[in-house]
Write a protein that binds this DNA or RNA. Structure first.
Length: 712
RNA sequence: GGCGAGGUAGCUCAGUUGGUUAGAGCACAGGAUUCAUAACCCUGAGGUCACGAGUUCAAAUCUCGUUCUCGCUACCA
């Protein structure tokens, strides 16, 4: 795209169920903010929108758990998240929320238009229903045993212990969290977005048109989804928390959170329009608008496939790019909210920015390090040691020190005023250094346009490195010793000093402009020190060497950054580790409590003896065992039952090696209907017991007895 | 098992369409310097480019196989 008329930039809407960590910050917010600040410095027409995502089932569930209301939860987190972003210099034009009536109306209009145009399908299907609570159960309202790890309190959409995503049908022994009863299946009607109808469009648009300008990680994910066969996705849910489906026959249904959340970008833009009196429509409808979504890799499918289809059907523009980041690990392990392995934005703000020796410069330090290690092409690694090193040996020693020594020298050798540039005394080095400044500007600009924030930041720091080298070669403090009879530097000496510091100071001013998108607080402090207005930071000034007027007196120098001490790093590491320990002990307590609590609902409904008698149990002996190909968890067993030897497929491969179980005695359900698994017919089932850690144990007789012995 | 992304110096990462001796920053070692936050500046050491084979005059780069990490997905009675 050539220079677009206007830009609409979005960052993924954070989910309002808790505080967000620095991985989120590095993935979706900081790069977007840098890009936006750059565009705004260019005086381009740009709106940057974001807001809290406040729907979905997790929030009402959390409310029940904490004995409060869903509204109370979102009212608690929304303002904190908004303030966190502000404290870290993420400068949205609007930070909206999806619980706002304006958003509800927008999402409903969106749904209605698609539905009226025949772009949605209606399907009836069996869903879990709680008879006592008289309500359908969203995935999160069903708990049961995880088929993957055996955890007994897995949710219908995901197991919190092994992290596997599930569907309610996969759960073993599903239980409604509303009443504790076993739910029944009941017919219900839902609206679907038939993605399969748009496969050709997506293939063409993503894999051809954007084959060269989207990141390879993004393209790969999209291709994988498209090739895997797109399916219709339910747009509605049986739930009472969310945007009501605007149809009479859809009583008790809301829009599925994935459908309403991205529409939040549009409603946020509308709210911005209300606040500013500017028209929002061109930003979503005019072809000359460049729409860019900043997200983390978990969000690729929604922003590259689903939302674009929605936008196209609704008549909106499509995103020009979706620069998704990979994940940021922390000290050798994945960041995780549930395991408490994370650094929350709030924690960083409390420990660094709000401290006595902190302040906004510490916000910039985090912005610096996170940009330096941004997971642009692959997962990256946050370490506190790396954080300290980046600050102490780059920000402090290279950048901060350069600015400081320039100002200090100017005060010592040039009487606190910007010295003149003597054209006749210019050396080749002077000229070359001045050229470097405009070269830097070009590089930074080109890299930012390509969303290469890490490289762009490196170029800025490199310019301060060039400044240090230049100053070192010119040695004005040595030249100052060439004094005349009056004890003052000779005319030639003073001219050399003037030129050196003139160039050094102009370079400082350029540094302020170039660093501004990345470290906005620092850029402003530099303006203060140089006694110029913030308007100097306009991008058009970059590359120029006449930003500071000759003879202008500047303020006494102040340090831009402070060193971070080893003790601070040690404290953070300790905090991180103890948080995990704390979380573990709490988790154990919780399990113990749940185990005692769950006992009753976990017992299945009563049966009569005849029911039990229908089950034919016999003792068998495993005579051979082998792994089933193309399946991680299946073992194909031959079991001697005395009267015959049968093939039984069992999902225990993760717990036992084939060779160690040969010869074991097992209890087998003999008269279970055969079932094919991975193409192999299984004739029976091995009984297993599972301990609290999810480990499996065979149920077998105390002593070795004959195969085929009955069990009752 | 399938798909996607990765594996490059002690650490964090670049390496465009195959083309001299594989790069940067940090950390490390030596030197120089003192205007500066014991900062800066110069020099240096460091890599079998995960492993194995193939294509080619030439492979970090292309092909095939193996292996490890991360993500998605399948099997799970």
């Amino acid at each position: 795209m050539n220079q677009p008329k206007r830009y609409l930039i979005t960052s993924a809407l954070p989910y309002a169920n808790g505080l967000k960590h620095i991985g989120h910050l590095a993935g979706a917010y900081l790069p977007a903010d840098i890009y936006v600040r750059y565009l705004k410095a260019q005086k381009r027409d740009v709106v940057y929108v974001c807001g809290s995502d406040e729907h979905g089932t997790a929030i009402p569930i959390q409310a029940t758990k904490e004995g409060t209301t869903a509204q109370a939860i979102i009212d608690k987190y929304h303002p904190i998240m908004e303030q966190n972003f502000k404290d870290l210099g993420i400068d949205f034009d609007i930070y909206h929320r999806t619980s706002d009536p304006l958003h509800h109306a927008t999402a409903q209009e969106f749904f209605t238009k698609l539905n009226n145009n025949g772009d949605l399908e209606i399907k009836e299907s069996d869903q879990y229903f709680d008879e006592q609570a008289n309500s359908f159960l969203a995935d999160r309202y069903i708990k049961g045993t995880c088929p993957n790890c055996g955890y007994e309190s897995a949710y219908g959409d995901q197991c919190e212990r092994c992290g596997k995503s599930l569907s309610p049908d996969e759960l073993i022994n599903p239980v409604s969290t509303l009443s504790g009863n076993t739910p029944i299946k009941k017919m219900t009607k839902h609206w679907y977005l038939p993605l399969d109808r748009h496969e050709n469009f997506l293939r063409e648009w993503i894999l051809k048109e954007h084959a060269n300008d989207w990141r390879s990680t993004v393209l790969g994910q999209c291709k994988s989804w498209i090739d895997g066969g797109l399916q219709a996705r339910a747009v509605t849910r049986d739930l009472d928390w969310g945007v009501k489906v605007p149809l009479k026959e859809a009583e008790g249904k809301v829009l599925y959170v994935w459908f309403d959340a991205p529409i939040g970008y549009i409603s946020a833009t509308k709210q911005w329009s209300v606040n500013t009196g500017r028209d929002w429509k061109p930003y979503w409808e005019d072809k000359d608008t460049k729409l860019v979504h900043f997200i983390g890799k978990d969000n690729i499918v929604f922003h590259c496939l689903i939302f674009p289809v929605m936008l196209k059907l609704h008549g909106n523009i499509l995103p020009d790019n979706v620069p998704s980041n990979e994940f940021m690990n922390l000290e050798g392990d994945k960041m995780s909210t549930s395991r408490n392995w994370k650094i929350e934005m709030q924690d960083y703000i409390d420990d660094f920015i709000n401290k006595e020796n902190g302040g906004t410069q510490m916000a910039d330090v985090l912005r610096y390090y996170l940009t330096l290690i941004a997971p642009e092409t692959k997962d990256s690694e946050f370490t506190w040691q790396g954080f300290q090193d980046a600050n102490n040996s780059e920000l402090v020693s290279i950048f901060g020190n350069y600015v400081n020594r320039s100002l200090v020298l100017m005060h010592k050798l040039c009487k606190g005023k910007v010295p003149p540039l003597h054209a006749t005394a210019l050396t080749d080095l002077d000229k070359a250094t001045m050229e470097e400044v405009s070269k830097s500007k070009e590089k930074v600009e080109a890299l930012l346009e390509q969303y290469k924030f890490r490289d762009a930041l490196f170029e800025v720091i490199n310019l301060s490195r060039i400044g240090n080298q230049y100053m070192q070669k010119k040695e004005p403090w040595i030249v100052a010793k060439q004094t005349g009879e009056n004890g003052q530097p000779t005319i030639e000496a003073q001219e050399s000093i003037d030129n050196t510091l003139h160039i050094c100071l102009q370079l400082c001013a350029n540094l302020a402009i170039l660093i501004n998108p990345f470290l906005p607080f620092t850029a402003r402090k530099m303006c203060y020190l140089m006694k110029v207005v913030d308007k100097m930071l306009d991008w058009e000034n970059a590359g120029k060497m006449k930003l500071l007027s000759v003879g202008y007196s500047l303020r006494p120098p102040e340090l831009l950054f402070r060193k971070i001490e080893d003790t601070e790093i040690a404290y953070q590491l300790e905090k991180l580790r103890s948080a995990v320990v704390k979380r573990d002990t709490e988790a154990i307590k919780e399990t113990i409590m749940e185990e005692t609590k769950i006992e009753t609902p976990n017992v299945k409904p009563e049966i009569v003896f005849d029911d039990f008698a229908k089950i034919d149990l016999k003792v068998g002996k495993i005579v051979s065992a082998e792994k089933v190909e193309k399946a991680d968890k299946l073992l194909k067993l031959s079991v001697d039952l005395g009267f015959e030897t049968r093939t039984i497929v069992s999902g225990i491969a993760l717990h036992f090696k084939p060779e160690e179980i040969v010869g074991k005695q097992v209890t087998v359900v003999v008269n279970l209907a055969p079932r094919k698994m991975r193409g192999i017919e299984s004739n029976g089932m091995i009984l297993m017991a599972e301990d609290s850690e999810g480990k499996l144990h065979f149920i077998n007789p105390e002593t070795d007895i004959n195969a085929g012995a009955g069990v009752s």
